[in-house]
Computed example of a mutant assay.
Amino acid sequence: MNQFLSRRTFILIPTMSFLKIIFKPMQVLASSLASKEEWNFSKDEWKARLSPETYYILREEGTERAFSSQLNNEKRKGNFHCAGCDLPLFSSDKKYDSGTGWPSFWDSIEGSVETKVDFKLIVPRTEYHCSRCGGHQGHVFNDGPPPTGKRYCNNGLALKFVPD
């Protein structure tokens, strides 16, 4: 009997800890998004506000084809805003050419994005969303340049560029 309990404990405790790691970021994201009533639109309201392609990325967490965004080559000074709610997310001085085919940044504007764990490709990735409307932007990786070492790999259709 003790052997059974120790095996059960051995299996359950790591599993429960793992589930807490997965669901805690999603709960934090959900609670912070719930407080943003003005951007709590229905599916049909979002579809009316956005193009089908932008809706797919922002609201269904889709991804555009690599090298398809004109923003990948944008070099002017300014800010990159969320295409859903116009919140500034990235400054042009934090943009760099990652060679991946998507607009990439080594840091976001403080408080502009929120993250959660994504298991769509089986291995965990860090997905990030606009902190105001919850629109999916892309994924952040730990292979970027100094000083942060981060690569915010963004869908171009999830952004709009506002020049200085």
Rank of each mutant, 00 (worst) to 15 (best):
M16N: 04
S17P: 00
I57K: 08
V117E: 12
I122C: 04
D118G: 06
K95V: 11
G138W: 00
N72D: 12
W46L: 06
Y55L: 03
R76Q: 14
S104E: 06
L50V: 00
K20N: 10
K95M: 08
S35W: 03
F10M: 13
W46G: 05
K94Y: 02
C85Y: 00
Q70H: 07
N2T: 15
G111T: 05
H129C: 14
L12A: 14
A48C: 06
D97G: 09
N79F: 12
S68V: 01
K20I: 15
F105N: 08
A48I: 09
G135R: 04
L157P: 01
R125K: 14
C130H: 04
I13S: 09
C82P: 03
Y56M: 15
T100F: 06
F67E: 09
G156H: 08
F141V: 05
S68E: 02
I109D: 13
Q70M: 02
S108T: 02
Y56I: 11
I57A: 14
G149S: 07
I109C: 07
L87T: 14
E37R: 11
E110H: 14
Q70L: 11
K150R: 14
G84H: 04
E64F: 07
N40V: 13
K20W: 15
K160E: 11
I109R: 05
E53G: 06
K160G: 04
P163R: 06
L71M: 04
F41H: 05
W46F: 07
Y128F: 15
S104C: 06
K47D: 09
S104V: 00
L87S: 12
N40W: 00
E64N: 07
P147F: 01
F41W: 14
N40C: 01
G62T: 02
S31W: 12
M1T: 13
R8A: 14
K24Q: 12
Q3S: 11
L5K: 15
E37K: 15
T9I: 12
Q70T: 11
D93E: 11
L71N: 03
S92V: 01
K43Y: 13
S131H: 10
N73D: 10
W102G: 03
D118C: 02
N72L: 14
S31I: 10
T15G: 09
F67N: 07
H81M: 01
V123R: 12
D86P: 04
I109F: 09
I109E: 08
Y128K: 05
L5I: 04
W102P: 00
S35E: 15
V162N: 03
G62K: 02
C130T: 08
E38H: 10
N154V: 05
S32C: 10
V113N: 05
N79L: 03
L12I: 14
E38F: 09
W46S: 02
E37T: 13
Q27S: 13
E74V: 04
R151H: 05
I57W: 06
I57H: 07
Y128Q: 05
Y55Q: 02
L5F: 14
Y128H: 13
F90P: 14
K24D: 09
D143F: 11
A30W: 11
P25M: 07
P88Q: 05
L29W: 13
H129Q: 09
N72Y: 06
M26N: 13
A66M: 06
A83M: 01
K75L: 11
V162E: 12
E37Y: 02
K36M: 12
P88M: 07
F90G: 12
R76W: 00
K160L: 02
S92L: 09
P146L: 12
A158E: 01
V28M: 12
M16D: 00
